[in-house]
Design a binder for these strands. Structure first.
Length: 488
RNA sequence: GGUACCGUGGCCGAGUGGCUAGGCGCUGGUCUGCAAAACCAUGUACAGCGGUUCGAAUCCGCUCGGUACCUCCA
């Protein structure tokens, strides 16, 4: 087991050596989507970033339990109907049962993630399925004196908590400063302080999603589900908790507070946060209404898109930037990713029929070491990809007779591609359409015709065949071994 | 206003003191009937100003510009 993995811990704002609490087991919890709309590029970022973490940890030999929740209870909607649940708002608009909305978008989310080749988490708990667990945590926090009840709702007493534990340690905030900056929000009158947050909220009459509790018919507070479910499945002290940077405050900060208040200690050893996707320099997000859904990327149907981009192009695009950097969306960048990935895939395929030499003209060992170094450096996928491009160049040079590789080295490189490109980065060759025998035979017929035309120097016919196929997105390449075709 | 972060060649994007990042694009060459692909060649980029240092894109200060969080958001 490789023990050189460095992870950037948001808590310490530095890279630290990853040392699991109970090796070989690793507990990984990631904040999943709120299922009230289609997944967009930002959701993909988070899912892919932690898919890489999951995949690499498994590759290193750890036994990982990966928990990613589905938020189906919804959090408070502050602007419009106060105290109303996000999922409930949509449900009423569409005249559907809330759970119908939840099911619909959960299914679509799963489908999108499958297309992006994101592995399924080990456990995918829903907030609505863990109301009892959440109530238990609220009870414990009340018993420990860090919360108070007001008119059927329960609030976390930040002031009281802050006397015993530093509130704001994750996000670098201070309670005194929060006092001056917090705005007027729903339920303000019931709170002792503006920065107190709800652990349990009483539902008003119109609120359809509600559950009984010792305090009122209502629903759990914003941050409760992750605290309750992470601990339930990973224990009250686990390794990694991840999520988007926009969840840092108040969501994750409050989770830390809830852990201390409930268990007397923090639950999370390493906090990881992925950065945002930007569009025109601005965060792509639900609230700004500037998002492009994954389905729109896949079919190209959005005014900002010049073409469709395949799921693997999206994935490759993401991985060419480090997960902690913002990544700016543009057609040019996506196009570059598409071309770059095709190049990698092609040289990887070339490996299979590469001419081996008695001995290699280069020492390939350093290439492999660099691949691991890159991944060990806080999952630096852009560097990993850069090294794969170096290998790609080497392969092409061998193919051109400008370098030599032994059979043994060719096999080693094949293993590296399988391990890093496919297993760890999770890329896959795009489906070549319905590639059945009939298509193969038809294509061979066409290529034979074109070859005959070429032999007769009837280039007009040869080119017209190529052009006609080009319009069907079929590319012809003349190689030493004859013409080859591929679907883009 | 508070907190955190960023500003790299045409585009995207690594890199935190000295060693070619990488991809895409552009241009020229090799190959090809022509293409495509590939290979070879090609860009003295680090917001500005000052400082530390033998040496800074990289450290420090200031200025300018931008973003995120402080409200649900991946």
């Amino acid at each position: 087991m490789n023990n050189k993995l460095q992870i950037y811990n948001t808590l310490s704002r530095s890279k630290v050596l990853f040392e699991p609490i109970a090796p070989p087991h690793v507990g990984l919890y990631v904040c999943g989507p709120t299922v009230y709309g289609d997944a967009h590029l930002g959701h993909a970022r988070s899912a892919i970033a932690f898919d890489i973490v999951f995949r690499y940890l498994m590759h290193l030999g750890y036994k990982v339990r990966y928990v990613r929740n589905i938020t189906d209870v919804g959090h408070l909607e502050n602007d419009a109907d106060e105290g109303e649940d996000k999922v409930a708002v949509i449900a009423r608009l569409e005249k559907l049962e809330p759970m119908e909305v939840v099911k619909y978008y959960t299914d679509r989310y799963h489908k999108d993630m499958d297309m992006l080749n994101v592995l399924h988490p080990s456990i995918e708990p829903t907030a609505s399925g863990h109301i009892i667990e959440q109530i238990e945590v609220v009870k414990t926090i009340l018993e420990n004196g860090y919360a108070y009840e007001a008119d059927g709702s329960v609030y976390f007493d930040v002031d009281k908590y802050n006397a015993d534990y530093p509130y704001g340690k994750l996000s670098g905030r201070k309670v005194e400063e929060l006092l001056q900056t917090t705005r007027e929000l729903a339920g303000q009158k019931e709170k002792k302080n503006s920065f107190d947050f709800a652990l349990w909220k009483k539902a008003d009459d119109r609120h359809i999603m509600r559950w009984p509790s010792p305090w009122s018919d209502g629903f759990p507070g914003w941050h409760m589900e992750c605290s309750a479910m992470s601990v339930k499945y990973l224990g009250d002290h686990f390794d990694i908790h991840g999520g988007g940077m926009d969840l840092l405050f108040p969501h994750h900060e409050s989770e830390i507070a809830q852990s201390n208040a409930a268990h007397g200690h923090e639950s999370v050893k390493y906090w990881m946060h992925n950065n945002m996707i930007t569009i025109d320099g601005q965060k792509m997000g639900k609230s700004l209404n500037n998002f492009i859904t994954l389905q729109e990327f896949f079919n190209g149907e959005h005014e900002a898109l010049q073409q469709a981009y395949s799921p693997m192009t999206i994935r490759f695009f993401m991985l060419q930037a480090h997960y902690r950097s913002t990544l700016d969306f543009s057609n040019e960048a996506l196009y570059a990713a598409e071309k770059g990935m095709a190049k990698l895939m092609q040289s990887q395929q070339l490996l299979h029929d590469l001419q081996a030499s008695p001995r290699s003209s280069v020492d390939i060992k350093p290439y492999g070491e660099r691949l691991y170094e890159a991944m060990n450096d806080d999952f630096n996928t852009p560097i990993t990809i850069a090294h794969l491009f170096d290998l790609s160049k080497l392969i092409n040079q061998v193919n051109d007779g400008k370098a030599q590789l032994s059979q043994e080295d060719i096999q080693t490189i094949q293993t590296w591609f399988k391990t890093f490109l496919f297993d760890i980065l999770g890329l896959q060759e795009e489906a070549q359409g319905d590639n059945d025998q009939l298509v193969d035979d038809l294509m061979q017929t066409l290529l034979d015709l074109r070859q005959q035309a070429k032999a007769n120097k009837d280039y007009a016919t040869a080119d017209s065949i190529r052009e006609a196929l080009g319009k069907l997105n079929i590319q012809i390449k003349d190689t030493k071994e004859g013409a080859k075709w591929s679907v883009s």
